[in-house]
Amino acid sequence: MHGPVLSGWLLVALCAATGAYCLVRARGCAGEARRTAGGEALMGFGMAVMAVPATVVVFPHWTWTAYAVVFGAAAFAALWAARRGGHHLHHLVGSLAMVYMALAMAPGAGHGGHTAAGTPLLTGVLLGYHVMYVLRSGVRLVPVPSAAGTPGGASADPLPGLAPACRLVMGLAMVAMLITL
């Protein structure tokens, strides 16, 4: 990615840690939850590699084609799974955003069509979607007091897991990556 080296490495560390957590979470569940956690792990690790500062590591030209193929396949899988509902439409948008960024980062792509005149429409749409996703996810992390005055919500578990926080982190990372595209 283009941008300050320190923030690039911090983004790499954050996305890699999120991907690792999602991978561990995938090992502890089955069925649809396992597929969701696996998709989130793929996204976390993919974003970590993509966030490596361009001034430090220059990837071979075929890397971005491989990215487009991998995340294109992930988008197809998310589209196929979306017919059952759930979180898959977000995975579809995220995977398509990764394909878009990979194609924009390919040598000779001109950084996704970004010019002095402004940001391409697709970048703006993806950025708007992910900003709204981050805001919605952030609000969902805030505990809601129950009628008795104690924190309540959808789960009686006092530690419902880090999955919602990881989704928020990946949404924020996507916003950061789209801004620096």
Rank of each mutant, 00 (worst) to 15 (best):
M1G: 11
H2W: 12
P4M: 07
L6I: 14
G8V: 02
L11Y: 01
A13W: 14
C15Q: 13
A16V: 15
G19V: 07
C22K: 02
C22R: 04
C22F: 12
L23W: 14
A30P: 02
G31I: 14
A33C: 00
T36W: 06
A37N: 13
A37E: 13
G38W: 09
G38L: 14
A41F: 07
M43T: 03
M43I: 09
G44M: 05
F45L: 02
F45W: 10
F45Q: 03
A48G: 08
A48E: 06
A51R: 01
A51Y: 06
V56D: 15
V56L: 08
P60S: 06
H61V: 14
T63K: 06
T65F: 09
A66K: 02
A66Q: 06
A66D: 11
Y67K: 01
Y67E: 04
A68R: 06
G72K: 12
A73S: 04
A74W: 02
A77Y: 05
A78W: 01
L79H: 03
W80E: 04
A81P: 01
A81M: 08
A82F: 11
H87D: 12
H88G: 02
L89E: 07
H90M: 08
H91Y: 10
V93Y: 10
G94M: 07
G94W: 00
G94C: 12
L96Y: 07
L96E: 09
A97P: 03
M101Q: 01
M101W: 01
L103Y: 10
M105T: 10
M105Q: 10
A106Q: 13
G108L: 11
A109C: 05
A109S: 15
H111C: 05
H111L: 14
H114L: 01
H114E: 06
T115C: 07
A117K: 00
L122W: 09
T123F: 01
G124C: 09
G124T: 14
L126H: 07
H130C: 02
H130S: 03
M132C: 09
Y133P: 00
L135Y: 05
L135W: 05
R136I: 08
R136A: 07
G138K: 04
G138V: 09
V142G: 07
P143E: 08
P143G: 10
V144M: 03
A147Q: 04
A148K: 07
A148Q: 08
P151F: 09
G152E: 01
S155M: 09
S155H: 13
D157A: 01
G161T: 11
C166L: 08
V169G: 02
L172I: 14
L172E: 05
V175G: 02
A176V: 12
M177V: 08
M177D: 04
T180V: 14
T180N: 15
L181P: 00
